[in-house]
Simulated scan of single mutants.
Amino acid sequence: MSIRLGYQMPNFSYADSTRELFPAVIAQTREAEAAGFDAAFVMDHFYQLPGIGTPDQPMLEAYTALGALATATERIQLSTLVTGNTYRNPPLLAKTVTTLDVVSGGRAVLGIGAGWFELEHLAYGYEFGTFTDRFQRLEEALQIIQPMLHGERPSFDGKWYHTREAINEPRIRDDLPIMLGGSGEKKTFGLAARYADHLNIICGASELPRKIEALHRRCEEVGRDPNTLETSYLALVLTDDDGNRARKQADEFLQQLAAQDPSGPSAEQLREIQGDRQFVGTPDEVAEQIQRRVLDQGVDGVIVNMVANGHEPGVVEQVGKALGPLVHKG
């Protein structure tokens, strides 16, 4: 498994009708595959997230969508960025992602995190609990899921979860990779050092040197070579052949977000909040920013999302051509 270049689709608010929505998702994924992206991702949410849109905007259920994408593609890896652990019983999640692996011919990756969006939990009746609760649950879940992905039959009695010789068949491999996503230098990074094959770091780009240093410490604490844990960074990209148009789109997007919630941050405040995670300009300008702000800081790869125009034909291909040479060296 290697994910040096990934494409995340966090937005489904671009089709004129619901019938046209999934064909547009397939088209983006196929374009990413043809452009050399290693993996395609959807979010595991039920409502659109703050900072992208409003709760009533379209949001597809993740694993149903990934199963359909598996039959519409041939090579690209498929995953969530990332599965909310609180939304599924761990053995069922192991079964779900393993089935995706079978359907896709060995292209599934289990992206997983502790869960954080309280509104979804309250609306759908899932227990939210405390921050500590959610990370305890994630650690217990990983102790069940990891052996199930490896063909073992775990029996587990924890505070949150219980299994009895949980069987996970059929499988086509015993090394389905696990990817953790998040920014927590102690809990998330510690779990990644113990259980994961890949860590997607979600933070401001200026924080990356500290994050990488913290990850190395977590690996050292459990006796793991940090070079065996692949890393990537989630980048918010707004790009166009006309760099000025891309910068204008970035401003318009922030103004739109501010208008959706008059009681929330202003466009200028949002610019300060999101600016450290945004990469804006022509594809070549974005590539230079990714190299300098991310890859040069010791991160192995990048996962991009393009909320404003990723659904427009040709945009994903342009970004793939610009970023591919940076991450697929040698």
Rank of each mutant, 00 (worst) to 15 (best):
residue 53 G to H: 10
residue 280 V to Y: 14
residue 141 A to Q: 03
residue 2 S to T: 14
residue 51 G to Y: 07
residue 165 E to M: 09
residue 6 G to K: 01
residue 31 E to V: 02
residue 96 T to R: 06
residue 30 R to S: 09
residue 31 E to A: 05
residue 24 A to F: 02
residue 34 A to S: 08
residue 305 N to G: 08
residue 223 G to P: 00
residue 278 Q to V: 00
residue 236 L to I: 10
residue 183 S to E: 14
residue 32 A to P: 15
residue 306 M to W: 01
residue 309 N to V: 00
residue 127 E to I: 03
residue 241 D to T: 05
residue 60 L to E: 01
residue 46 F to R: 02
residue 246 A to G: 06
residue 156 F to S: 08
residue 210 R to W: 11
residue 167 I to N: 12
residue 104 S to K: 05
residue 199 L to N: 08
residue 101 D to H: 09
residue 46 F to A: 00
residue 245 R to V: 06
residue 109 V to N: 10
residue 124 Y to M: 07
residue 304 V to M: 04
residue 279 F to T: 02
residue 64 T to Y: 07
residue 303 I to L: 09
residue 69 L to H: 09
residue 238 L to N: 13
residue 277 R to Y: 13
residue 294 V to N: 08
residue 82 V to S: 10
residue 71 T to H: 13
residue 298 G to V: 04
residue 157 D to I: 02
residue 14 Y to K: 01
residue 294 V to Y: 06
residue 307 V to P: 12
residue 252 E to S: 13
residue 95 K to T: 09
residue 136 Q to T: 08
residue 240 D to V: 00
residue 327 V to S: 09
residue 10 P to Y: 13
residue 210 R to H: 11
residue 165 E to H: 14
residue 81 L to R: 04
residue 53 G to D: 02
residue 24 A to Y: 00
residue 279 F to H: 10
residue 276 D to A: 13
